[in-house]
Every structure is written in C-alpha cells, then in structure tokens.
Design a protein around this nucleic acid. Structure first.
Lengths: 144, 144
DNA sequence: ACCTAGAATGGATTCATTCCATAAAACACT
DNA sequence: AGTGTTTTATGGAATGAATCCATTCTAGGT
C-alpha cells in the first residue's frame, strides 16, 4: 500500500466510482482493489479477497457490487464455457482471451494487427452486430 | 416422418451412433432426432422433445446422452454467456455463432472469406491454441 | 438364450447465482 | 452538524442448471 495521503488520482477506486455516478462504499472500493490484484478472478476469489480486506462482507454484497460495476461499464464480465463468470477491470480496448482447457488459466490477447476479427459476416440474418467476442482455446505451458 | 423402411442411410441416428462406437439406445436415437429438429436447443428443450417422442425419459438420461454424443464428436456444445448450454449436430466446419442479446436467438455464421479468425495471436503466452471461437453479439431483426 | 459391460432410473446433491425483506449507511438539504 | 430520502448491505431462502450416486435394466457379443 503506497502512502498517497489525500490522493485525488483519477484511477483510484473512489474516484472511478464517483465518476461513474456510483456511491462510494467500502465493499465497492474493496472489490475494485481486489479486481486489480487478481486478473480474471471469479466471484469466489473476489469474495474471499474482499472479505480479507474488510473483515466481513456478505456474499450478496459482492455480487451486487459486481453487477453495479458491470452495469456502469467499470468492469467487464466474461463467461468462458465450463467455468464460473470471471471479472476484469474494463479497459475498452477490445481485447480477447486465451483460455487453458486444463487449468482454466486466462490471458489477455490483442487481435492480430489490432484489427477486430471477422467484422464482415457473410450472412448476418438481419442482426445488428455490436461486438465480436473471440476465445482462443488451448493448453497453457504448465499444462501442456 | 418419411417412410424409409429398412433404411441404411449413413446419416441416420443409429448409423451415426454405431459409426462412433456407441450403443444404439432409444434415448440416444431420440436425442439425435430432437437435435435435428431444434437448432441450438438447450437441454430443457431436448428433454421435452425426447420425452414427447419416447413417452418418458429421465432427465439424467438426456444429460448422459448429450455428454456421450459430445465426447464422441457427434454433437457440439456451445455455452453463450448468460444462457444454458446449447447443442447442435457437429458439422466440423468451424462455423461460429451470432447471438441476440435480447431473445437469445442463435444463428450459424461462416467466418468472412471462410478463413479462421485471428489465428495469429501477437503474444500467445506459450499456449498451444487449438481453436478460435467467435461469438457475434447483437440484436436480431425481431428484437431490434 | 445367456452374460456382462454399458446405459437408464430416481433421488439426492452441488455450485453459481438471484430473490426477498429488513437493517444500515451514503449523500443531499437544511 | 442533524435530518431525511434513497441506495446499499445483510442474512436467509430459493432458483436453475448440471452432476453424483446406487440400483435396475438392456444392448449386443458369445
């Protein structure tokens, strides 16, 4: 914990919450902090981390916080097949994910050449497409 | 139901099962038939359809059948975020899916120019990638 | 026709998540 | 600083999807 007394840095949890029009509460600040520590954490991990930090929080509080953060666009929720939902700070950079089939490890990947993949669909069935989500499945070095 | 007495067509449920080294049972045949009728059906739909066809089947039987079919490569399981698992006959054509955020409708899409998307990842973290799964999110014409 | 491995049954159980009513606390306004 | 209104947290129960288990049944080889 760096000593930043009276900090007003724009990337601080409380500042982020205020900027998003959300009330600043201990659970919210703690969940945001936990999200920074654990990349692609699931709810369980975040509950445990938040609980360790605050002494106690209800399970539902963490779920509520996550929902509020996702709705506000501060957090991104991903749901890889076969694993519970994972959460990451929302970076708005359209990155994708690399998932290990064996251990579930997840890493961020930028799309080749920075272009969004396959934006042109041959037949879109009249759909209005707003996002192309890519998941790369494989084995991580530890599991291979 | 077309009248194909003593049929031996290679794409028939029982032939498919035998070719995959699986025993031919009523629930398996019925689930395969149900999968043809309902594109991207979830377990509930398949259970209901199978039950209607056979008179009765246990819920677990259908789940077991689906697992066996998926393991045998006859069926593909997809799990779009926010909805229960969906199943489709496995076509081995590397197609992707278009999902309506509102009603959950799913359509198949071929990747632009038939190429697999973003095969070259900038940094693969040492992973051995075997599949790139793409989900296009949007609104279907009915929901737009 | 018989035997045995594999499949189906019914019942209970897990896991992740959501719903509900009540109690607490954050921010706006004196 | 005190008060009030509205949002948030709590604790407990409930849901939906899927899986586990022991028992019974059956497909298909001998």
């Amino acid at each position: 914990m760096t000593d930043t007394t009276h900090a007003h840095r724009i990337d601080e949890p409380s500042a982020l919450l205020r900027a998003a029009g959300l009330r600043v509460t201990a659970p919210r600040v703690a969940v945001l902090a936990a999200l920074r520590e654990h990349r692609h954490a699931d709810a369980d991990t975040l509950i445990a981390t938040t609980r360790a930090r605050l002494g106690s929080v209800s399970t539902q509080a963490v779920y509520d916080v996550l929902k509020a953060l996702v709705d506000a666009g501060l957090v991104r929720r991903i749901e890889p097949a076969g694993s519970p939902a994972r959460y990451e700070p929302h970076t708005h950079d359209n990155h994708h994910h690399l998932v290990c089939r064996t251990c579930g490890r997840i890493e961020d990947v930028d799309c080749a050449a920075g272009r969004r993949p396959c934006l042109d669909v041959v037949d879109d069935f009249g759909f209005t497409i707003d996002e192309a989500e890519v998941v790369y499945w494989g084995q991580c070095p530890d599991c291979a």
